[in-house]
Design a protein around this nucleic acid. Sequence first.
RNA 1: GCGAGAAUGGCGGAAUUGGCAGACGCGCUGGACUUAGGAUCCAGUGGGGUAACCCGUGCAGGUUCGAUUCCUGUUUCUCGCACCA
Length: 880
Amino acid sequence: MWYQTAPMHERYNPAEIEPRWQKRWADERAFSVGDATGKDDFYLLEMLPYPSGRIHMGHVRNYSLGDVFVRHLRMRGKNVLHPMGWDAFGMPAENAAIERKRHPRDWTYENIAQMREQIKKLGFSYDWDREIATCDASYYKHEQAMFLRMLEAGVAYRKAALANFCDHCQTVLANEQVEEGKCWRCGNNVRQREMQQWFLRTTKYAQELLDGHKELEGKWPEQVLTMQRNWIGRSTGAEIRFALKNPVDGVNELSVFTTRPDTLFGVTFLSIAAEHPLATRLAAGTPREKEVQDFADRIRAERRVRHDVGEANKEGVFTGATCLHPITGAEVPIYVANFVLMDYGTGAVMAVPAHDQRDFEFAQKYKLPIRVVIQPEGAQPLDPATMTAAYVEGGFMVNSGSLDGTLNEIGKEKVVALLAEKNAGRGTISYRLRDWLVSRQRYWGAPIPVIHCETDGVVPVPQKDLPVVLPEDVEITGEGGSPLARHESFVNVSCPKCGKPARRETDTFDTFVESSWYFDRYTTPRHEAGPVDGERARNWLPIDLYIGGIEHAVMHLLYARFWQRVMIDLGYFPKDTPREPFAALLTQGMVCKEFYHRQDALNPAHTLYFYPEETELREGTRVVIATGEPVEIGGVVKMSKSKRNIVDPDEIVSKYGADSARLFVLFAAPPEAQVDWSEAGIEGASRFLQRVWRMIRDRREMLLTTSPYTSGELSENAKTMRRTLHKIIDRVTRDLGERRQPNTGVAAMMELLNALTAFEAKTAAEKSVLREGVDALVRLLAPFAPHIADELHEHLGGKGTLLHASWPAFDADAVHEDSVEIPVQVNGKVRGRVRLANDANEATALAAAQADANVAAHLQGKTVKKTIYIAGKILTLVAV
RNA sequence: GCGAGAAUGGCGGAAUUGGCAGACGCGCUGGACUUAGGAUCCAGUGGGGUAACCCGUGCAGGUUCGAUUCCUGUUUCUCGCACCA
């Protein structure tokens, strides 16, 4: 293949350079990678995007971070897997169908095509041979097969449950998808509705998911681990059974969960949730029946509209029933209370008003007894009559029979032992984590592969009939639930077991199911026989570095960790496959920008937002061009369409080039911090590349006839240049390596450019040092700004891309100095500097310091009481 | 309320292991070149002071010869969770 090398123009012109190199990389399939080789393999992945149609700056940042590491790793000889694909199922496609009368499939694939082009224009080095789209039947058929195995293994199951239902999206949501009582997607209120739903038994893995964090410490952001830990919400306590005084319908006890068994002797009543099966039955047939029923109904109804989350007033009603304290035998009343949750613990709690704030408030309101059983050490004894809040700290047990005087922490175990003896309870662990609700009443998702038969119940779709392909001839109106349920030929099937007419399941999977294993699929993306070719796939795992947004801290990352374990346990992978799929995680910050707004004159409650181009500066005030009205400058917030503060990557690429865009987002802030978009900032990045271009162009003739320095005597000037060069090589190497801080790497390269520009190469040896430095700069630049780097490399006589060129080697000798200048402090302040031999001892250092005029002046009239000498670093004199 | 994180010039940020605070970039100031400059190049740029020097990393303490870094308290902000028994 022959490529025309452009002449080296006066000015750097990314618009000409970038498409040429992109074509070359593509033609050479430069980013394709084979199987893991077992040596120097590296799997780097960025979270797969939803194909909304256009990429945004958040994507640019995410992929720039990934690509800079990937390209660096390749140059260091790693075999890097760096794939890209599409999280292609999901609601926006259905909304597009409703709003624009486009079929979700067409809309999705067009978006994919468009975004793929945008990504390619940025020069990211993906192995496109491994591309996947999760909406493709060749992908989801494996998901369906896995689900059937999970069904067999009891990991997947179906139950009627109160589910979070979003009326707007007409679908149920997992707990994780409800944010402040609202749907995470559309923001509408979520209500509770009882439905038959499919679940995956994430709770079975709760402990393992928690334990797995140990392996991730230091490699995942602490924040993410904390969020997951809180979400799993493990608490240690006891399950205690209280015998009902009068059994109802054969039920003779009520079980509660508590983390404070040490307060058992302080129980003065029991509280149960309105949804608890016993709530209404306890009062059935008594004068209280109606009151209890009404109360339970009301609380349940209130909970159906969950928008007002927060601590409501404590409220409850006496059921009329009582139970017996398992140790003292005392009679304890049972209340239905609004603050007890059915889906945590057992849905019933033992109330210890003296030592639990909620119970305290409840007891005060309903004039229930308060009994102190924990006494703080060395403080005034607590008095129920004067207490204004529950005492929840530790102390010694009192009023607790034989356990009086025991430290409450020890008392916990003793009470559990006592209960075990009486067969009334046991130590147990409770988790906040719920099973994952995976069914969605949506069209654009992977069909759940089961059939409902009147005779045989739930029947899995036989393997040979997979995949259950999503029918294409559907009418999407956005009303009346899932379009699949109205699709006659899809729904009406015969039972695979008995052959009688049956109904096909019309729910589809939550899209988090697809994103729970796509990273596995990338390893063997065209494997037909199953989701992965286990052995070959295992060799790529775990993912060495996963990069994405913090917003996926809980849901996606927890589900993926769960799914990976299930796949291993079901035998899709060899048993020794790492159970943690993501060995290291980098969560990049948002891309933000200021926004312009003003109050709507016609409707003061309404805020109007303006695009920057709709405004201009007039005499120092930013105004709306059309009306002349001043706008307020809002804070720097995440780019969003609604705030009209988005920057289109395409426009940036055509104006400044991909290299400048990449360089800017990498330079502007450390990866975890937010980046504030600034036009001036990207101009700075562009200017830097211009200066690199000019520096090389101005010296090109000389450089082309010079080879890089290898050995020989050097002038002081050249030695200094090489010292700077190799210090910077070392810095950039570590910034892209273990430090993962490309921002400081960019700064180092800028310093190198400044040094090279200032360096006057006169002798042959100095010229060879310059050539060494220029070659190194171009290579250091390659991961950040690959197009210009490859272009400059060719202009310097190199052949082909730097993609697999060697990374500049750090020469420790170049950095070595025989003497070093160190600061001299007198009483903590720097008063001078002295140049010392590397091996100078303290006495020599002190003598040199005392010889310094300024140091001497500060020591005038004082005695040096103490000397601290850190060789090569600092000399500190303490003088009085 | 609970948990986690952050706070450094006019701005984004740097300081990698407790050792010269402010690297690098933006912006700004002055100058050069120029018909022109929103291009480019040079110089300067934390505050105060003629200077010596003093002050300075949200605030108040502490440890240390030495603290942006470690400890205690506190304020503000961001994020997460939120009646979880």
